[in-house]
Amino acid sequence: MPDTPVLQAIGVTRSFDVSKPWLQRTLTRKGRLLLRAVDDINFSIARGSTLSLVGESGCGKSTVARLAVGLYAPSAGQILFEGKALSAARAQPALRRRMNMIFQDPYASLNPRWRVRDIVAEPIRAFALLSSRSAIVERVGALLTQVGLSPADGEKFPHEFSGGQRQRISIARALSSEPAFLVCDEPTSALDVSVQAQILNLMRDLQMRLGLTYLFISHNLAVVRHMSDRLGVMYLGRIVELGPGEAVFRTPRHPYTRLLLEAIPDLAMTGKPRTPVGGEVPSPIDPPPGCSFHPRCPLANARCRIERPAHTLLADPQGEVLVACHAVEEGRHAA
């Protein structure tokens, strides 16, 4: 079925228990504390496309990334991988090897005591994709070449490489199980700007050649624009706007998306005053009632403070956009 999305999230929620230890709780007579990192999220990613999720620190982006590869189990809702429940799909090695992850910190994501060739070959060995030693060596060499390193680099240790080269090794490892779906959790945020572009171009190139599907997590809008087919904007565990990348960039509808786009540094804007995003992100342990963005929203009114906005489907020349905002729904915002 070519229409089945590679990954589908249906009403996914993930809470973390952040309560104090039992004794302290009993003494202070306080109940359990739950942090809702991800709250009722819905999205689907079509084969060969990229869905990006952006948002400020602590909005639940990385939790979504970990949910998508099964490192966390959802507290509520369901994640489907190629039409099957994720936990069931992960129980089968043949499906599990079709997903992999690229991590944020290239200094922590490679085991410092393993040689690069063993790091890259680990998924090959774990899934027993190749049996003979020489075939594995050859495949590792090909993978390293594919990400712009040389096969001889396999003999070295990770600490002999720069951040960008390490991220290339990380990509080679992710590709070695021949995955169809890659979750990229801020893969460039720890890198120099010049190296960021190299890694992003490499990732785009690999996507086109291998038909990969990406879930791309980032806080950098410029990076996201380069990568995404579809774009979701997250705020406090919820997706507030979701639509085709260009539609969201050209005509941002949700006030939060607008504020984010306003904040992108721009040479043409040098010296001109800009609207800063005021206020702090509220604590996800105790989110504000109604729309969670209302304390910072320039368009908030009484309704926003009480009623939580549902997603409204809006038409756009690029496709349909989902927005969760009363102001947009009522037409209160100046378009």
Binding site: R96, N100, N111, S177
Partner: peptide, 13 residues
């Protein structure tokens, strides 16, 4: 808590 351990968990070791 390091990411290389997570990478090993993702491939289901």
């Amino acid at each position: 808590g390091r990411e290389y351990v997570m990478a090993a968990r993702v491939i289901g070791l």
